[in-house]
């Protein structure tokens, strides 16, 4: 098949056109720079400077109005005995560990469901996507109403059907983060759409032969679908990690970081530090510490994925 062809071709070129390789290499490299030039120019002109500036500010005291005063590593050493740094970091880490697998699984399942040919499929897809478009307040209201300890639907059903006294959800120190994870269920639209798009590009012949071999639907899903969309699973996981490290609006709207700091997310702390405490330098230090953590996690995912992610047509040896 193709891999063979390509290897043959390459072997041929290696033997016969050894001298032509370098110019070709150079041509490819030139093309590379041409193609990425929009991003490079944008980075130099617009995004790179502010990012660098935030790095510089992380070594300074900056109250927004007076010029920054450089204090070396002062901000970073300050983090070590900052109770809220540890608290918000652990709250966030707990959230990320729960929310990334939860949203991956639920959005993939939903994508598979919405990929079935049933009547009204386009309407279903649209309605399932709506919470991702509409005003955050309406969604926050929905969840605080569903999970309200006294008025809420969930607890009243628990009571009526099982005779259980439902928990406090958002007001319970132990349940507030799991509740916020659960709340992300209605925000999976974007991830779901990406999965749905990737499900469209699966080759039919593989399923055909699998079905002929008598493989069950479940088996087809794990043996064919999952490996084939693994580049997209990797993508969604990495984006999931990056974005959930920066999550805080749900807490800002519903719990204000409580009870007792148990939903005080890292970026919530950063936000307060920057815009209410006016410690922009310290906020920048917080940001860069988070950058290092997220960057390492992303690298780790990319390295681990080399074995797990399957680029079907990647014939590079």
């Amino acid at each position: 098949m193709s891999a063979v062809n390509a290897t043959e071709l390459r072997a041929e070129s290696a033997a016969k056109l050894k001298k032509r390789r370098n110019p070709e290499r150079a041509r490819e490299e030139r093309a590379f720079w041409m193609f990425i030039s929009p991003w490079v120019i944008g980075f130099i002109l617009f995004s790179g400077g502010p990012i660098l500036a935030s790095l510089v500010l992380s070594f300074a005291d900056y109250n927004v109005i007076d010029p920054p005063k450089f204090i070396g590593l002062g901000n970073f050493s300050g983090l070590f005995d900052d109770r809220l740094f540890y608290k918000s970091l652990s709250v966030t880490a707990y959230y990320v560990v729960l929310v990334v697998p939860f949203t991956m699984i639920s959005s993939l399942l939903l994508a598979v469901l919405l990929n079935q040919k049933v009547r009204g499929q386009p309407l279903f897809r649209t309605l399932y996507y709506t919470p991702s478009i509409i005003s955050g307040v309406a969604v926050a209201y929905l969840w605080s109403w569903l999970l309200n300890p006294e008025f809420g639907v969930v607890n009243s059903l628990l009571g009526q059907w099982f005779g259980i006294r439902g928990p406090g959800w958002f007001t319970d120190a132990h349940l507030v983060i799991p509740s916020m994870v659960l709340m992300q269920l209605t925000a999976i639209g974007g991830t779901m759409v990406i999965f749905l798009a990737s499900l469209q590009s699966l080759p039919s012949d593989l399923y055909e032969s699998a079905a002929m071999d008598g493989a069950s639907r479940m088996r087809q899903f794990f043996r064919i679908t999952v490996p084939l969309i693994s580049p997209v699973i990797l993508f969604n996981s990495i984006i999931g990690i990056i974005s959930s490290f920066q999550a805080f609006t749900q807490s800002y709207v519903i719990t204000k970081g409580g009870p007792d700091w148990n939903s005080y997310f890292y970026v919530y702390y950063l936000f307060d530090t920057a815009f209410f405490h006016f410690r922009m330098g310290y906020a920048s230090a917080l940001a860069w510490v988070m950058f290092v953590i997220v960057f390492l996690l992303t690298l780790l995912s990319l390295v681990l994925s080399r074995k797990l992610v399957y680029y079907e047509y990647d014939s590079r040896g």
Binding site: V137, A140, Y141, S144, W145, N148, P149, E150, F151, G152, G168, W169, F170, T171, V253, I254, T255
Partner: peptide, 13 residues
């Protein structure tokens, strides 16, 4: 008096 939690759900709106 209502529990703080009960209040929060309403005061979101």
């Amino acid at each position: 008096a209502p529990n703080q939690a009960t209040v929060d759900a309403v005061s979101a709106v």
